[in-house]
Design a protein around this nucleic acid. Structure first.
Lengths: 208, 208
DNA sequence: GGATGTGAATGTCTTCACAGCT
DNA sequence: AGCTGTGAAGACATTCACATCC
């Protein structure tokens, strides 16, 4: 299977959002030009066509793309036709924000377990899910596996938690801990680092 | 001034974090190899040297880099020698998490104003900052400008808020609203989209 | 006629490999 | 001898431009 650039995948995710907007507005057909224009600046018609062409040819020459059909194809490509069971490790402020974030559930990512180490948090009910002692992680995941884990622990705890998640069969990790994490190549890892985002802004500001 | 790739800037931000760890451990000197190894997988010794070489030559051949001196240089490059005044627009769950996040203040990003539209939120005190009606935005920023704004509004409100921020002189925007935003080229913009991050994971999982 | 799909060309980023300091 | 700094080579990503098909 051909390697696909991460930038391509991120754009597909954007296109999907735009297509859903168009569908909502009752628009039946779009050209690569219209799709690119919606993400103004971010991309070009040629880019849209090239991105899609890695996966097949979904348009009609002279016409463009059927909005609903293309959205379906992209959902399929991105693996969004199924639901994902997600565990959240770290019941702090960020964790609390993520649990309440509608965007996850809308896309089929369902937080089914929440862990923390703090006895004050353990037993709380968040959006219907009871916070459990992180000590139960392995036993729980054995009984009731998850596909993805979101890690929102302090930096010092993150690698250990990730190791335990990986050996419990988790195949994707979204890491919010402000540190760099190691996983075997069989596991997909994405790290989101807020401070890093602000620092790239700071750099841009410093040169303008 | 030579254009620098965003990927280079992100790595510099990482290197800085690693250098701070090394300094904390009392390590005086690092080689490009040691720095690359700390971010295992993410980079290579050659990459480290090339990234740094865009800004000058900071190492000693045969020896490596002085940890403290290099950290200082990178802070300088990233524009982290000054403090930034930051406004937060949107006092929801994510906003609340960001306000409490220590990593921002540690790096010189200080949230000095918080806005919302919800009368229930207005008047609340968050970490010593009073939430104000977003209607006061322009007047407030005129009296007391900020450098950067973090936008955490619903998607539908984001572009309008951003336009008002930009015309009030904000030069950098960190956007958490799940939509794509336009700014003039004089303004630096970064968008963080949680659902998009999960979708790239989903894509990776679907192909493994 | 009009917009896709795609090789070829261009541009950008990463890796290599070694000359040059310390 | 050891490790940096950097042109040159290679890999990768984007843009161009046009033949192709509806």
């Amino acid at each position: 299977m051909r390697r696909i650039a991460e930038s391509t995948v991120r754009r597909l995710s954007l296109y999907l959002r735009f297509l859903e907007e168009f569908e909502h507005q009752g628009i039946k057909t779009v050209s690569s030009e219209a799709l690119a224009a919606r993400g103004s600046g971010g991309t070009t018609p040629a880019q849209v066509r090239k991105d899609l062409s890695f996966f097949g040819s979904f348009g009609k020459r002279g016409l463009g793309y059927d909005v609903r059909a293309l959205a379906t194809r992209i959902r399929d490509i991105l693996g969004l036709k199924r639901r994902y069971r997600v565990a959240l490790v770290g019941a702090g402020k960020v964790g609390s924000a993520l649990v309440q974030y509608e965007g996850f559930r809308d896309r089929g990512f369902e937080i089914v377990a929440i862990y923390d180490r703090d006895p004050k948090k353990i037993g709380e009910r968040w959006n219907g899910v009871v916070v459990r002692d992180v000590g139960h992680l392995e036993a729980d995941l054995k009984r009731s596996p998850v596909d993805i884990a979101i890690v929102v622990t302090p930096a010092a705890a993150a690698q250990d938690v990730v190791d335990r998640l990986v050996s419990s069969g988790v195949r994707g990790i979204l890491n919010f801990a402000p540190t760099s994490i190691n996983v075997p190549s069989t596991v997909a890892l994405k790290t989101v680092n807020m401070a890093q985002e602000l620092e790239t802004l700071s750099f841009a500001l410093a040169r303008k």
